[in-house]
Design a protein around this nucleic acid. Structure first.
Length: 535
DNA sequence: CTAGGAACTTAGGACCTACTGA
DNA sequence: TCAGTAGGTCCTAAGTTCCTAG
């Protein structure tokens, strides 16, 4: 009987718990709430239209949020200011509301100066004061930062309720500047096991609900007021639960490795389909596979910044070039992706893809969807029929990891610059001998003499050279890294076992590759990986 | 099917700290 | 000794995916 990796996975998970159950027992102390608002000292004033004005606590708190951000460029943005002012007015008393009608007439400068002074003062605290502060923080971590999951003590990822403030968002976010409200215990749902001690709400308060749902991994949740999204308190990445999930993710990506050729054949064949949906799906898949684009869910207009992924690409985001820079069939991409990060790329594609794209763009406006018959759910449904567990994002994981493995193999060859040593080893093995040259003894002695003469200067030169080399490497590294964030891929896409195996093979200490946090997160991989691991 | 909700992963930026090189 | 930087941590926004109700 053939047992696939995924079957093994499923068996392993089932072994633990039946269907969807994530834990048997869960106990914790609830979330940590940010401190109450402290009103401004009496000598710090807000002015409206040049006149001193004492604000109510609620309005003052929001004014402080704005004053704190005054050095940031976005407090000058129209959308930000309008959203802020609208929300601020909601916090004002009727009297305040009747007076404060124009943000331009508001003078926050004293509040701003006070804030800057506070930041400065914090920076200038003595060593002892800083230590005291640190210990106080440590105390909070000890009390709220851990939970007991199936009787194992685990670190919680984000045990703090998000403090109130002004929403920024990324890119041209239509909701920037809106007030992100303070969360009360009455809005928080606690999740723990039935037999666990229910965490105490802050004095005088109660929880919204205490539930005992062991099919989810979160410990507490609340609904945030900007997008109406639910926020969760969950475990740290170094926890068993998260680690197993991570391992599972990479196993699915490895499974893709075994069938990616078939899948590629399939979508290349689908490019010729008479069905429009199928052709669009094939082109989208081609992009996702070749360019590691994200799936691209549709988003509600006006709720978020205008960003796209593969399925939500619009005609305006690509330009077709029959001929560009000596290549045929070039697609020029220019769009804002996740976090409003620009994706710009010129890619030669196969002619079938190129022709299909032309068709998709026929009779469309720039603002129209490129893949008008396609969405992520259709795409993922198709993918899961090709391989269980396969979704669009698996391609990113797979392509990232396989690329690392290939690159490491190539670099490895170069690194074994001791080609000559290898050659010699082979020669010894094969007994390829020769008689020592007659002049060997003398020439060696000569050399030795010269060596001791030049030694000193050489050492100096060597030091300089080493410095130079180091600087050159640094410069290259920095230049290449200018716009590249290595952390994200390391943390989310690269199967850690590739790196662990490489370290073992190359005799590189794992600390050179992973910092403490990363070692904790990837503890599962460090433990289980042999040098011969193949992704 | 479609929309919206829920749960979870992925992501960049702010801030903090330890190190380094002048 | 001190400023500047690199790297780590924290924070939470912004994605993906799955599920459910109509």
């Amino acid at each position: 009987m053939h047992v696939s990796l995924l079957d093994v996975l499923r068996i392993k998970m089932e072994e633990k718990y039946e269907d969807g159950v994530k834990w048997k027992s869960l106990e914790h102390n609830g979330p940590y709430f940010p401190p109450e608002y402290q009103p401004l000292p009496d000598d710090v004033h807000f002015y409206y239209d040049g006149k001193k004005m004492k604000l109510s606590a609620a309005a003052e708190e929001v004014a402080l949020f704005f004053a704190q951000m005054l050095d940031h460029e976005y407090t000058t943005k129209k959308v930000f200011r309008e959203n802020f002012f609208k929300d601020w007015r909601k916090e004002m008393s009727p009297e305040e509301k009747s007076v404060i009608k124009d943000l331009d007439k508001c003078d926050f400068s004293e509040i701003h100066a006070m804030h800057k002074a506070r930041v400065e003062a914090r920076k200038n605290l003595s060593k002892e004061e800083k230590q005291t502060l640190k210990e106080a923080n440590q105390k909070i971590v000890e009390e709220f930062g851990y939970c007991l999951l199936d009787h194992h003590k685990e670190r919680i990822g984000n045990f703090k309720i998000e403090p109130p403030g002004l929403f920024r968002g990324r890119g041209e976010h239509p909701k920037q500047g809106m007030l992100k409200k303070r969360i009360q215990p009455e809005e928080v749902i606690i999740n723990c096991s039935k037999d666990a001690r229910i965490p105490d709400p802050p004095p005088g308060h109660h929880w919204k609900e205490v539930r005992h749902d062991n099919t989810v991994t979160w410990l507490a949740s609340w609904t945030e007021n900007i997008q109406g999204a639910i926020k969760y308190i969950m475990l740290n990445a170094n926890s068993k639960l998260k680690g197993e999930k991570d391992w599972e993710k990479y196993e699915i990506a490895r499974k893709l490795k075994s069938c990616v050729d078939d899948i590629r054949d399939t979508y290349l064949r689908d490019l010729k389909s008479k069905e429009m949906v199928t052709r669009q799906r094939a082109v989208a898949l081609y992009f996702i596979d070749k360019l590691a684009l994200r799936a691209g869910n549709e988003k509600e207009e006006g709720e978020t910044a205008d960003t796209v992924g593969c399925c939500s690409l619009r005609v305006e985001h690509i330009t077709l070039h029959e001929q560009l820079d000596g290549s045929k069939c070039v697609v020029e991409f220019d769009f804002l992706g996740k976090d409003s990060i620009r994706y710009y790329n010129k890619v030669p594609v196969i002619s079938k893809v190129f022709k299909s794209l032309k068709r998709f763009m026929d009779n469309k406006e720039p603002g129209d969807e490129l893949f008008d018959r396609l969405n992520t759910s259709l795409l993922n449904k198709h993918l899961s029929s090709l391989m269980p567990g396969l979704t669009a994002k698996v391609f990113r994981t797979y392509n990232a990891s396989i690329t690392l493995q290939q690159q490491l193999k190539e670099l490895t060859n170069k690194k074994l610059l001791s080609y000559n040593r290898a050659n010699r080893a082979v020669a010894i093995l094969c007994n390829h001998q020769r008689a020592p040259p007659k002049t060997f003894e003398q020439s060696m002695a000569n050399l030795q003499a010269k060596v001791s003469l030049v030694e000193r200067k050489k050492a100096a030169v060597k030091r300089c050279e080493e410095q130079l080399l180091k600087m050159e490497v640094q410069a290259t590294d920095r230049e290449e890294n200018k716009q590249i964030a290595l952390g994200t891929s390391k943390l989310n896409y690269l199967d850690p076992r590739i790196s662990v195996a490489w370290c073992k093979n190359m005799d590189v200490p794992i600390e050179k590759i992973y910092n403490k946090t990363q070692r904790e997160k990837f503890a599962w991989a460090i433990d289980m990986t042999e040098a011969d691991f193949e992704f």
